[in-house]
């Protein structure tokens, strides 16, 4: 599947709230091949930038241009939030929701939801109310709900933050399968091992700006800035 979204070009893109700039100005071009990992210390602006690109945060300056019209670009994306948002419905209904919202027939939507629940390991709890799931189960649900629409681009904001080693493996397998099927992935993570396992490209952020970018191989072999080097070593980044 050739993606019609990319390249996406950000020029001086900024999002601010009550006069405070959360992230930006950002100049960045992503070509959407494979998995792009955003790294950086807490508060660096990873979440804000991902949300901005997705359109969940308001662009207050600069521009973001996709290779296709914006409405089409928005429809081809999905987002897994750092704190999973659970609809007050059953697991099955949650996963089926995006399909139902797009007008897919109820029976088909529910069938596909079941298949996806199975794939992320929630097959045994279809009827359970989503808000009572454990944190890790909620993240799996959010992932299934994002992938069910077969997006061209999937944003994941720390998708494995509260998962154990095995669940992380399972999720990474699903992500790698998605990539193999042509889905572009943009994800933020604090898990260095995960970044090394998944990244094709790396964007290193600091203080609300993009500090360094490069291919994963280059970035992990020799960082160009001492801040990124310090971050990789696990030191405190100033």
């Amino acid at each position: 599947m050739v993606s019609g979204l990319f390249p996406v070009v950000l020029e001086g893109a900024e999002t601010s709230r009550r006069g405070r700039v959360l992230v930006g100005p950002i100049d960045l071009t992503l070509d959407g091949t494979g998995i792009c990992v955003f790294m950086g210390p807490n508060g660096a602006g990873k979440t804000s930038l991902l949300r901005l690109m997705h359109g969940a945060a308001r662009l207050t300056a600069g521009s973001i241009r996709w290779a296709c019209p914006l409405a089409q670009a928005r429809r081809a994306q999905a987002f897994v939030f750092q704190r999973p948002i659970m609809l007050r419905r059953s697991v099955r209904q949650n996963i089926a929701y995006p399909l139902r919202a797009r007008g897919v027939a109820r029976r088909i939507a529910l069938e596909r939801a079941e298949a996806w629940a199975e794939r992320v390991g929630l097959g045994g709890m279809l009827e359970r109310q989503a808000p009572v799931l454990s944190g890790g189960e909620q993240q799996k649900l959010a992932l299934a709900r994002a992938l069910i629409t077969e997006p061209e681009l999937l944003f994941l904001d720390e998708p494995c933050a509260s998962l154990d080693g095995r669940a992380t493996r399972e999720i990474e397998d699903i992500l790698l399968t998605a990539r193999a099927n042509g889905t572009s992935l943009i994800l933020s993570t604090h898990n260095m091992g995960q970044a090394r396992r998944l990244a094709d490209d790396v964007v290193f952020m600091l203080h609300g700006k993009v500090h360094e970018t490069g291919s994963a191989a280059d970035f992990f072999a020799r960082t160009r800035t001492h801040q990124a080097a310090a971050f990789l070593k696990g030191d405190i980044v100033e």
């Binding site: 969940a56 429809r75 999905a78 987002f79």
Partner: peptide
Amino acid sequence: LWQEYHDLLISMNVSQWQKIHTLLWD
């Protein structure tokens, strides 16, 4: 509930009507 759902429903591009329907139902 809208505060809770806001990001998710915005992300899914649901129509105004679907938003209202979802909130009323839940």
